[in-house]
Simulated assay, not measured.
Amino acid sequence: MTRIAIVEGDGIGHEVIPVAQKVLFLLHPDYDFFPVEVGYGRWEQTGCPCKDNDISALKTADAVLFGAITTPPMKDYQSVVLRIRKALDLFANLRPIRGDGFDIMIVRENTEGLYSGIEEIEQDRATTLRVVTRRGTERIARAALRCVHQRKGKLTIGHKANVLKSDVFFRDICIAEAKKAGIVYNDKFIDALSLDILQHPEAYDVIVTTNIFGDILSDVSSYLVGGLGLVPSANIGDRYALFEPVHGSAPDIAGKNIANPVAALRSAAMLLEYLGDNEGAGRIESAITKVLASGIRTRDIGGSAGTMEFGEAITGILGKQG
């Protein structure tokens, strides 16, 4: 039996993930769904945001549907997201940006870089070690190249090699891997790339970059499709996979039934693709397109529908299709 771990997390995760889970259950009542509670809310209750047995539970799943986590700016608070990514070795973060006339896949290295977690705070300074390894760079480059092969496109390498020696290292390894694979590539400074992707999105196919640059670039690129409420992501490793909307926990709108569930729904579609159900993934995307075309939209994209109302419209269409 296929086992799916459901992690709502914090904030609007409690609203958008139940919508996505309901859709997954509608398409696959044969799946075994089980909850795993982690996050800031868990820390407030127990003093620990994520325990070892939570990680163990996630490792029993065939895939994880993940909501959003609040990470407070406290020096002694360990990021739950970073811990899970490292524990499950989810080294490839795939963030698709699709719209009218463009289809971009941002492939972000997910376990090192500035999010290495090697940090120190002293009285007069704070340091964060930016770790870029050969192994980490080779495997994220190869993951990006697999995407290029599947899409029959081209690779763009995003970096800041004019300033950072670690990015010279990253760029050169990515170029070597692209040449070895016979893939057409180019490279751009990440600041220029962030502007150009907004001006000429049709010029890009697969973009590979380091951890923090990929995080920022994908958030910037969400402007092209209407905002963070519409953008999904996949976190892939050799053994495990986790799917989550790109948006955060958004505590300012949590509990108000106004959060956009589309990113969570699209993350669920990516989960189905990972499990081999391309038809089910296509049905979710088709339902989203039909609901948006009917004028049912949440406030962030110009409508007045609530989270639950949007979700009910999606399940209504899928129910008719079934």
Rank of each mutant, 00 (worst) to 15 (best):
M1D: 12
I6R: 13
V7P: 02
V16A: 01
I17H: 00
P18H: 01
V19D: 04
A20V: 07
Q21E: 14
Q21R: 15
F25Q: 15
D30T: 02
Y31I: 00
F34M: 00
V38M: 12
G41A: 07
C48Y: 00
D52L: 03
I55G: 10
D62E: 07
V64A: 13
L65M: 10
P73D: 11
M74D: 04
K75W: 00
D76G: 01
Q78F: 09
R83M: 14
L90I: 12
L90S: 07
N93E: 08
R95C: 13
D100Q: 14
F102E: 08
V107M: 10
N110Y: 05
I118W: 07
E119M: 05
E120D: 04
I121R: 00
Q123W: 05
T128P: 05
E138T: 01
R139K: 14
R139E: 13
A141D: 14
R142E: 15
L145F: 10
V148K: 05
K154D: 12
T156G: 10
T156D: 13
I173R: 03
A178H: 03
K179G: 08
G182D: 04
G182F: 00
V184N: 07
F189I: 11
F189Q: 12
I190R: 09
A192P: 01
A192F: 14
S194G: 07
L198I: 02
P201W: 05
D205K: 15
V208H: 10
N211Y: 14
N211K: 06
I216V: 14
V220F: 04
S221T: 10
L224F: 07
V231F: 04
S233E: 13
A234H: 09
N235C: 09
R239L: 03
F243L: 04
V246W: 14
G248M: 12
S249G: 15
A250R: 11
P251R: 12
I253Y: 06
I258R: 08
A259L: 13
A259V: 14
V262W: 06
A263I: 01
A264R: 08
A264Q: 04
L265G: 11
Y274I: 10
G276W: 13
N278S: 14
N278A: 15
N278T: 15
E279W: 05
A281K: 06
S286Y: 00
A293P: 01
T298Q: 15
D300P: 03
I301L: 15
S304F: 06
A305T: 07
A305Y: 10
G306Y: 13
M308A: 06
I314F: 02
T315K: 06
G316Q: 09
G319M: 00
G322V: 10
